[in-house]
Write a protein that binds this DNA or RNA. Structure first.
Length: 604
RNA sequence: GGGGCUGUAGCUCAGCUGGAUAGAGCGACGGUUUCCUAAACCGUAGGUCGUGGGUUCGAGUCCCGCCAGCCCCGCCA
């Protein structure tokens, strides 16, 4: 209903200016535009929309708010265009104006949507003044480390990042999904040194060690690095060799990366997530230039032998400005340097960069300080073009049901593949007991497919349905629960619709004959029509949980409709109309789930 | 010591630029099945929005202090 609310807003602005011509001048002086403050009604009994503007204008106009509302309404009642969209506006409470959309307008919207593949969600270019540009939006997410397995710490970034990417893509943006994997740094020196001793063949040919062994070697090497000075020296030398392009070291590094990459890919396939790999090492050739340019722009300071930039407005322990080290005293670069090089590359015009207009980092909230620091440096160095955006999209920790960081019983970090396996196993057990209760017989292919879909959907949905910023309490029991704001509940609503459609025979909906009489129908219609606003809002706020809440609402309203009104057994003129609502509900839910990265089912 | 995030019903959480009597779900209690998948639906109970001030017509929302929890803070990422 974006179009409709836009039109109404225009009418309201006109009414406001006609009733109180002086506010145009006041608006110019104060700099605040005339805003009727049109928002959705806070309660159904207030209608569809409410206008709050009269209250805030009371002070500037020095008139009681109800009087202001009265004058606005007087103007509106003379506007035939407005009255064709809205029933007579009503003043309520201290000066709210309640609006109810004309039912035939709602029906018309439904009719449009039934014909529209995008379900009324505008492309970016249609609703913004500026044309869509080919300039991509970069979303940096997932980002596991080579030689480590993906664990629960990567879960939220991967799922949330993917959903944000899907939403922006659907809105018509060109999106570059970057996997900034940890494929460089001192850990490779340690690992190669360790492997040279224990499994030298692993450095020469592929598939000699599996990822699990690699992780074990990594742990061992880390331990030795911290304890054994000789080992430390050897590791450092190995890093230097690698950095200098030594072919043997390079080959070993490539093998390690390849081994890990295969493992990551398995997870991404299970989760149906597409990413372009561009690890930290990609930016190696640009690191030196970062230092040089920071130096020439006068930001660089040498302190204790390390090259660093002192931050503005961010203080360290002793109240002194906090430094960010971009080149260590031994000449090595660190992650801040890589991140700065990445920012530059991403904003630079092709062919020397991506030419991005917006860069989004989906990482845990713990890195907020780091990004604040790096962004500040990039801004001060003028590496972010005017009009371009760079933002950190933080999320909270994944906690166990005890409220502490999620760990296995033995205290290890939880591997992502184990977590997904367990979700599927539990979903399968639930399904089997359900089948038994209902005396249903289904083949193993069906059971596998349904359990896998539900298990993965449950994990994704549970994560996405939570406000990103707060910590998230992980619970298989809750996410797989058959009731509540969960993936199975939403999937079930769709299955019900699919069931109707299967048994509905040939659905022949004459769009010209849509007519609705029952409150359950109108509730569903009103809910379905909110889709476009919700998606545009999620695009702006980057909060997928808002989309989840919406889909849950749609499912609930649909389930009431389904429960309380006959559909296939209704008289034919109602049957077709109700089937139309079923179809649109199904399309809405499928689209929404798709934007969350969750596939849907016909039967379950 | 400095900084960030969080604090809303027994539990898990929503709450969009400040707006009408603070909302869901779970759990609890009670009800609904000759009918399209009851994995559903209907109803009841449950809150000094951490706390103390301030801003104003109006604060869960904005500002300041305090308390609690989690996270980050120079050569790891």
């Amino acid at each position: 209903m974006l179009n409709l609310t836009q039109t109404l807003k225009k009418h309201l602005e006109d009414a406001l200016e006609q009733a109180f011509p002086e506010i145009v001048a006041i608006a110019k002086v104060t700099g605040f535009p005339v805003d009727p403050q049109l928002v959705s009604a806070s309660k159904p009994e207030f209608g569809d929309l409410q206008v709050n503007g009269a209250l805030s204008l009371a002070k500037t106009l020095k008139k009681p708010p109800r009087l202001i509302a009265c004058e606005i309404v007087k103007q509106l009642k003379q506007n035939q265009d407005f009255l064709s969209l809205c029933k007579s506006p009503e003043i309520a409470g201290p000066g709210f104006i309640n609006l109810t959309i004309q039912p035939q307008c709602l029906v018309e919207e439904i009719r449009q949507r039934l014909k529209d593949e995008r379900l009324g969600v505008p492309l970016f270019k249609n609703c913004a003044k500026n044309q869509p540009s080919a300039e991509p939006i970069i979303i940096d997410f997932s980002s596991p480390n080579i030689a480590k397995e993906m664990h629960v710490g990567h879960l939220r970034s991967t799922i949330i990042g993917d959903s944000i990417a899907r939403i922006l893509e659907f809105r018509g943006h060109s999106v570059l999904r970057l996997n900034h994997i940890g494929d460089w740094g001192t850990q490779f020196g340690m690992l190669i040194t360790q492997l040279k001793e224990e499994a030298p063949q692993a450095l020469k040919q592929a598939n000699v060690v599996n990822i699990g062994d690699l992780v074990t070697f990594y742990r061992k090497s880390k331990k030795r690095f911290d304890e054994d000075e000789e080992f430390q020296m050897a590791s450092r030398q190995e890093v230097v060799k690698l950095q200098n392009g030594d072919p043997i070291a390079k080959q070993a590094w490539e093998l390690l990366c390849e081994q890990s990459r295969k493992e990551f890919q398995k997870i991404y396939e299970r989760l149906d997530i597409k990413l372009t790999e561009r690890g930290e090492s990609f930016y190696n050739p640009y690191l030196e230039k970062v230092i040089v340019d920071l130096d020439s722009s006068g930001l660089l300071v040498v302190d204790d032998g390390a090259k660093c930039i002192f931050l503005e407005d961010i203080k360290g322990k002793n109240g002194q400005p906090l430094p960010v080290i971009v080149q260590k005293s031994d000449g090595g670069f660190n992650y801040a340097t890589t991140d700065l090089a990445a920012i530059r590359y991403r904003f630079n015009k092709p062919p020397n960069g991506d030419g991005a207009c917006r860069v989004i980092y989906v990482t845990d909230a713990g890195q907020a300080n780091h990004f604040a620091a790096v962004f500040q440096i990039a801004k001060r160095a003028n590496w972010i073009p005017t009009g371009a955006q760079i933002e950190h999209v933080p999320f909270g920790l994944v906690q166990g049901e005890d409220g502490k960081k999620l760990k296995t019983r033995s205290g290890e970090t939880v591997r992502l593949r184990d977590l997904l396996d367990e979700a599927v196993i539990k979903a399968k057990a639930n399904l089997r007991s359900r089948l038994q209760e209902e005396n249903r017989k289904e083949d193993e292919v069906f059971i596998d497919h349904v359990a896998t879909t539900i298990g993965i959907a449950a994990v994704k949905y549970a994560d996405l349905s939570q406000n990103r910023v707060s910590n998230y309490q992980f619970s298989f029991e809750k996410m797989l629960a058959l009731q509540g704001n969960t993936a199975p509940y939403l999937l079930y609503a769709l299955v019900r619709i699919a069931g109707i459609i299967r048994k509905g025979g040939d659905i022949n909906i004459e769009l010209n004959e849509l007519q609705f009489t029952e409150s359950q129908e109108w509730n569903l219609i009103r809910e379905l029509l909110k889709l476009d606003e919700v998606i545009v809002e999620v695009e702006e706020e980057l909060l997928p949980n808002r989309l989840c809440s919406y889909l849950f609402e749609v499912s609930q309203v649909f389930n009431r409709f389904y429960e309380q009104l006959p559909i296939l057994k209704a008289e034919s003129q109602y049957k077709n109309c109700r089937l139309a609502l079923c179809l649109l509900t199904a399309e809405t839910l499928k689209l929404g789930m798709n934007l969350l990265g969750i596939p849907t089912l016909e039967r379950m």
